[in-house]
Nucleic acid binder design. Structure first.
Lengths: 223, 223
DNA sequence: GGCGTATGATTGTCAGACAATTTAAGCAGA
DNA sequence: TCTGCTTAAATTGTCTGACAATCATACGCC
């Protein structure tokens, strides 16, 4: 009897139509955490053996990663994990300062619309109690703080734009030493921003947020 | 004698490694010009017959289009040309106002660095002479004006971010009736912005640009 | 050691297979 | 006629294999 051609069993079980998403998430996580180093080439045959899935799936995932600037396409050489020069990092922070400052302003303007105040206070109650010395928890709380403000700004495109800006910054900061003193200073700045938003003071909210982002830039980007 | 399997000849001659780019450009152009209507599904087999190239190439091009928000992915239904609600259009303009206003400020601050003044004046000499009643030329000059300012702002990420914002706006405006009066008003606003930049007045440049974008928004987005 | 050339590895593209899924069509029963 | 179920057709999502183009390296030659 003839041996039917065996089909590859995917590394992880997944539903039909999710392969590209699984591969994309896996690679993105690997890039953010440093599992794949900046500049490193991603060779499909190695990834096939390591993660499963097939070439076409990886190629589609590569296109998404390239669109988010996590990798760069090199003609006839596939893709490589993006390197960020200090200058480009500074440029990212410059845009982030602008967009997040605007988001804080809008959030303050709209704090009394709908359930905004309730949502913001729920987030803030949790974040303000966080222990600044627990680094992983602090990073998560920080995301939550900034994410909520951006959502409350009420612009449908702002969240995704900032997410794109933050991923490379995360790649960078992950390897940055974050001192106790710095997280505490960050906490204090969050407090200033939160108060301005809750008090409905747009100008102050924007100024405080911009200052906060500028300080993060000075801390993260080598001059 | 056996007939060797014929290979598909691509619709247009192109070099190795450019198929995805050709398909991407073709589809993007078709979407911007209205050849593919908002909401319309893009079915790969039809596109294969019409443009040439194969499924995997189209699937990769789709990922790029989806990343630029020109199409949306629908599970098990492929992709469809993105529809933009007036609200989302307004959100795009809100971000564009912010980023382009910032770009105008930076351009004014840096007008005397390097060859900035020469480059800006070269563009402006050409654009100011444009006939506002020639619509196609006006659209091109408009791109040139805004593009130069964004480049002179000196932020490496700004140009691509604004390009992404402008594509859906173009999709929309392409079908907008642009009166003679409006292009002339636009010209006059360009003049104000150009003078502020050439005079090195960042505050005025930003304010004029923001006003310019806000007026374009009022003209383009149904309230 | 420097330089052109063969060699191997990898990418870019095409083609075909098949399962999963959606949509439309056909049919049975109330 | 309407409703619900089954079937069929169309299309997507994924995997596999083929082959040309290109890049990187090793090799041989001088």
């Amino acid at each position: 009897m003839s041996n039917p051609r065996p089909r590859k069993a995917p590394a992880e079980t997944h539903r039909h139509g999710e392969a590209v998403d699984v591969v994309f998430d896996t690679l993105r996580q690997g890039i953010i955490t440093g599992r794949f180093a900046p500049g490193q080439r991603l060779v499909i045959r190695d990834l096939e053996n390591e993660i499963g899935f097939s070439r076409s799936t990886f190629r589609e995932a590569f296109r998404r990663l390239a669109a988010e600037r996590l990798v760069s396409l090199i003609p006839n050489r596939g893709v490589a994990v993006q390197r960020l020069a200090p200058r480009e990092m500074a440029d990212l922070f410059e845009i982030r300062e602008l967009l997040e400052g605007h988001a804080a302003r809008r959030a303050a303007e709209r704090i009394d619309e709908g359930d905004h105040r309730r949502r913001f206070m729920a987030m803030w109650e949790k974040v303000r109690r966080g222990d600044p010395s627990e680094r992983a928890a602090f990073i998560e709380d920080n995301q939550s703080f900034h994410g909520t403000i951006v959502e409350l700004a009420g612009n449908s495109r702002l969240p995704e734009m900032l997410k794109q800006l933050q991923i490379p910054i995360l790649m960078f900061q992950w390897r940055t030493f974050m001192t106790r003193q710095e997280t505490e200073l960050s906490q204090a700045e969050h407090e200033t921003i939160a108060k301005a938003i809750l008090d409905g003071r747009p100008e102050q909210a924007e100024a405080a947020m911009r200052k906060h982002v500028r300080r993060a830039k000075r801390r993260s980007v080598p001059q």
